[in-house]
């Protein structure tokens, strides 16, 4: 698939997404990118950003027209399209896709933690359209402590999916009807899927009080 073309948009995971206004000439300066320092290796190193290409279609153009300033980029990688939106723009875009573009099935909501970035989390919505047989992702970068708007008013599925994101990452959704943990015990301290939560970490107090043992390891 689109694989060895030249990079153009550079909304890769590491740099703050959609900061740079989209398809400039070249990935000018994602300057302060703390690229994983892999010294040596004289071989041509693969670039440390996702080689996403701009995605151009009726839908993509329509989105940019409708949401100027809120849709930052429309890109495609490995034949999969995604929209980069501002945190405030994600839900309106989701609603627009559902009501006017037939994306009537919210497949998934999840997050990715990039602790070194200013906007720490990527919030990812996957939507699918039955009539168009097409799948699109909406990505938005949010800071730690930011309360994104809930998607429950648009898709009922979002209820549990957002609860899981809250449970695992500590992202609280504003306006969610039932913002409780879902997989972890309710009194558990800490958010396991954050990158600074070690794999052997646990809530010692909870383990002691509820399991009556010193450590679950």
């Amino acid at each position: 698939m689109p694989d060895e073309q030249k990079p153009e948009g550079s909304e890769g995971p590491p740099p703050a997404q959609g900061e740079a206004p989209k398809p400039q000439a070249k990935p000018a300066a994602p300057a302060a990118k703390p690229a994983p320092p892999k010294p040596a290796a004289p071989a041509p190193k693969p670039p440390a950003v996702m080689m996403a290409m701009p995605w151009d279609s009726d839908l993509a153009r329509d989105l940019k027209e409708r949401f100027p300033g809120r849709v930052l980029a429309t890109s495609t990688y490995l034949g999969q399209n995604f929209i980069v939106a501002t945190p405030e723009g994600a839900i309106p875009v989701l609603e627009f896709l559902k009501l006017e573009a037939d994306f009537d099935y919210l497949v998934d909501i999840t997050a990715v933690d990039w602790p070194k970035r200013a906007e720490r989390f990527d919030l990812v919505y996957v939507v699918y359209s039955f009539p168009r047989n097409e799948r699109v992702r909406i990505k938005t970068a949010i800071a730690d402590g930011f309360h994104p708007q809930t998607a429950v008013d648009v898709h009922l599925t979002a209820n549990w999916l957002e609860r899981e994101v809250f449970d695992m990452f500590g992202i609280e959704f504003a306006g969610h009807p039932d913002m409780r943990r879902i997989l972890m015990p309710e009194e558990w301290e800490g958010y396991p899927l954050r990158k600074d939560y070690s794999i052997i970490q646990q809530d010692q107090r909870w383990v002691r009080e509820n399991l009556g043992i010193e450590s679950g390891q």
């Binding site: 890769g12 440390a48 996702m50 080689m51 996403a52 497949v107 998934d108 990715v112």
Partner: peptide, 26 residues
């Protein structure tokens, strides 16, 4: 895998089973 991400899903016996994998090149 090179830096990037992909969402791939299949028709599992129970419904759509999807994997969203993000690679940082490691």
């Amino acid at each position: 895998p090179p830096v990037g991400e992909a969402y791939v899903s299949i028709e599992a016996p129970k419904g759509e089973l999807g994997y969203y994998v993000v690679s940082d090149g490691s």
